[in-house]
Nucleic acid binder design. Sequence first.
DNA 1: ACCCTTTTCTTGACTGGGTCAAGAAAAGGA
DNA 2: TCCTTTTCTTGACCCAGTCAAGAAAAGGGT
Lengths: 162, 162
Amino acid sequence: MDTTWAHQLREAGLRVTRPRLSVLGVLADHPHADAETIVNGAREQHPSLSPQAVYGVLKAFVAAGIARRIEPAGAPALFELRVGDNHHHLVCRSCGAVADVDCTVGAAPCLIPSDTAGFVIDEAEVVFWGLCRQCQDRARQVAAGAEAVQYEQQEIRGGARA
Amino acid sequence: MDTTWAHQLREAGLRVTRPRLSVLGVLADHPHADAETIVNGAREQHPSLSPQAVYGVLKAFVAAGIARRIEPAGAPALFELRVGDNHHHLVCRSCGAVADVDCTVGAAPCLIPSDTAGFVIDEAEVVFWGLCRQCQDRARQVAAGAEAVQYEQQEIRGGARA
DNA sequence: ACCCTTTTCTTGACTGGGTCAAGAAAAGGA
DNA sequence: TCCTTTTCTTGACCCAGTCAAGAAAAGGGT
């Protein structure tokens, strides 16, 4: 698979280097990784790798079109190898988890506004904001916990004890 | 109109202060202003206003629901008073200009993905990326200029001169 | 296999956009 | 008016990322 990635890099007109292969590896394992995750992951194969090198690698990937950068509001940028299919993203407001959503159209721009205000549009970026399953569960537990606490406090205030 | 804004602030449960009124004024004049623009604008009415005060005011506005914060990738955050109608944005890739697009649905989330991956979705944020009219014109001019230069160079290379 | 040019990585300084914290000032209800 | 609470000022600090200069590595030509 290193071979495959080396091939991909050459196809994209990029030299094949260890930092680049490591970053590709991390990106394959973590489909929506931020720079920090990538640095940590890549260091397993290349311990001396610097953050700046990773920023450089990622910028080269994005410029070459083999990676895409997404920037959900309020979070560091994320990078993904899935490119060219104009898919969209679900983002968890609570934990920041990201999931892909296939675009039903598949080609950019998949949506066109009624009034373009004179703009020429080349892409419609869609972010669906919500709560991932884990965070829904956690919220339910917290709510239940709060209820229990309320109940206890009521009992204590009332003076009754089981 | 100061009166109106004061009223709006009170409605939102916020105290009426000069910094807040100034920021509201700037936001009314610049419907998609970044923090710096707001600081500069607000200082016309309140010269000693600090950037931190503006950040605080904006945070209070967003928390109170009288302003909305948008963060187009690669640009500082923008603030707008138009709130609660779930509209979307056109953003110019070249100059960063922003225009509003009415949402045909009007209530969030206006879009729902086919596969929610277990997420509960409360909002679909849509950003249309493109080129505003000015930047289209400028791009055309540059292209025309580049052609002219190419032509000259060809003539020079070929040795011919008019 | 080796050299040479070009690209890439390392190191380290620096920036932009913003947050956090403590005390001073102002808002507005009793 | 006084008093409490909120808000603003001042200044330190932080995160994510960029810029620049030199060292190292890639890979084409011989």
